[in-house]
Design a protein around this nucleic acid. Structure first.
Lengths: 88, 88
DNA sequence: TAGGTTCGCAGACTATAGTCCGTAGATCAA
DNA sequence: TTGATCTACGGACTATAGTCTGCGAACCTA
């Protein structure tokens, strides 16, 4: 997308919150999730802190290994968005 | 994720199908969608042909400008997946 | 103290998302 | 034909997703 548009990365932040919440619920450590879903340990950390934007494939992988549907992950992400229903 | 795991990029392909379907339903050209959602014209083409993997932010942007929820876009994407309910 | 576990974080890297510019094929209307 | 519209597609680029290594803080237990 064009340069300098988004406030920051509120979508990434919201996703991070959602990911952390689900991971906690399931009872996995960042490292355990990373191992299972075949990601780097630090990448899960980056995601949860909203410092990385997952791709579609990544979303599907994470959701699968957390035992939730991608839609659920997205829906939870939206619930964490400052302005609900939009991009943020 | 680790190297050489996924069959190809069936998730991207499925998303491309979903995107094209919704865009057609809404009656937008690739270029019109690109302009509205602030993406490059050719990028929409790449997405629809499954040659690019959208990020979370991109998914939210596209959904918003197509008048559907991100969950709907994901759900439709899953319906296009070869093996439904998994990563593919 | 000491050792295990979980996580934050930084720097440097490779892979890929997303842009920009141009060309060409297909379709439709005049 | 010509011209307009829509899309596929190429190369080359910049921005960022995702990896790897390693250190340190916080917390627990002994």
């Amino acid at each position: 997308m064009a340069t300098g548009e988004k406030s920051q990365h509120s979508v990434a932040t919201a996703f991070g919150n959602a990911l952390r919440a689900v991971r906690g619920r399931v009872g996995l450590t960042q490292e355990a999730l990373a191992l299972e879903a075949d990601f780097d340990r630090t990448y899960i950390s980056l995601l949860e802190r909203g410092q990385r934007q997952p791709t579609l494939q990544t979303i599907f992988e994470l959701a699968a290994h957390l035992g939730v549907s991608p839609e659920e992950l997205i829906s939870l992400t939206r619930s964490y968005l400052p302005v609900n229903g939009s991009t943020g």
